[in-house]
Simulated scan of single mutants.
Amino acid sequence: MEEEDVTKVELNPKKVKKRPFYRFFKRSVDIVGSGAGLVLLSPLFGYLAYKVHKEDGGPVFYSQERVGKDGKKFKIYKFRSMVPNADQMVEELEDQNEIDGAMFKIKDDPRVTKIGHFIRSHSLDELPQLVNVFKGEMSLVGPRPPLPSEVEEYTEYDKQRLKVTPGCTGLWQVTKRNDANFDEMVELDLDYINNSGFFYDMGIIFKTVGVLFKPNSGY
């Protein structure tokens, strides 16, 4: 018997389809939080944009197709932390992937720029996703939005994490992050969905703010 079968989380349907008051407050916090963040952090956005462009003259922002709630695809926004042709280099680096399952991660990724290492360790590269939150494509808190190629490898169990709006941060990001393998990430996401609530979300947001000042295992 495989150990991972023992720890699988059973998703509570009520936590997905009902709870109208929670969904209302969650969306309200998303709109207010992302709007305020875009305004208040605009000086930081300008500084980071300058640093990213100055390093190699490439584009400041990076957009990529991701899969959101119920399998709906959208474009996610980030500060560019890799060389401009990073996507074309994935195939030649495939054998260096350090995350088991339907994910691609390399701790010492040769594609990451100097400023990219810094903004990734502090999760600053994720700040432009506030635009996605304001548009309703993402939430401040929720599961990580996967790539379409990752979803193609999902089991029906894994696809449960697509039943809610993806988030800029979540339980996985503020606990194990890249110290977790894919299966552990799925378990943490489903655990979050089952236990999600206003105060739980706020706790995750406050922990995420702490990452801006104290680097974690992000890469």
Rank of each mutant, 00 (worst) to 15 (best):
R80S: 04
F21I: 11
G116I: 04
F24K: 14
K17I: 14
P84I: 08
D125T: 02
D100S: 11
L93W: 04
Q88V: 01
H117N: 04
D108Q: 09
G68P: 07
S42K: 07
H53V: 12
G35Q: 10
L93Y: 01
E126C: 11
K8V: 02
K78W: 08
L127R: 03
M103N: 10
V67Q: 02
L127W: 04
G116N: 02
L40P: 00
L127T: 05
H53G: 13
F25T: 13
K51I: 12
V90D: 01
S81A: 13
L11W: 05
K114V: 09
Q96M: 11
L93Q: 04
K8E: 13
Y50G: 05
K54A: 11
I119A: 03
L41H: 09
Y50H: 11
H117K: 14
L124T: 03
S123N: 07
V67E: 06
K75R: 08
D70T: 05
R66E: 00
K78P: 09
I106F: 06
K75V: 06
E126V: 10
K73R: 11
K26M: 02
R120P: 05
G33N: 09
M89I: 07
F61H: 04
A86V: 01
G46N: 00
K78N: 10
R120E: 06
P110H: 10
G71F: 06
E91P: 09
G37C: 10
I115D: 01
R111C: 07
E65G: 09
I76F: 00
P84A: 10
D108F: 01
A49W: 05
P84T: 08
K78V: 08
M89C: 14
D109T: 09
K8W: 02
P59R: 07
A49Y: 04
K72Q: 12
D95E: 15
G71W: 07
F104W: 01
D87W: 04
G57I: 12
D56V: 11
I76R: 01
V6P: 00
R120G: 03
M103V: 12
G71I: 03
D30F: 01
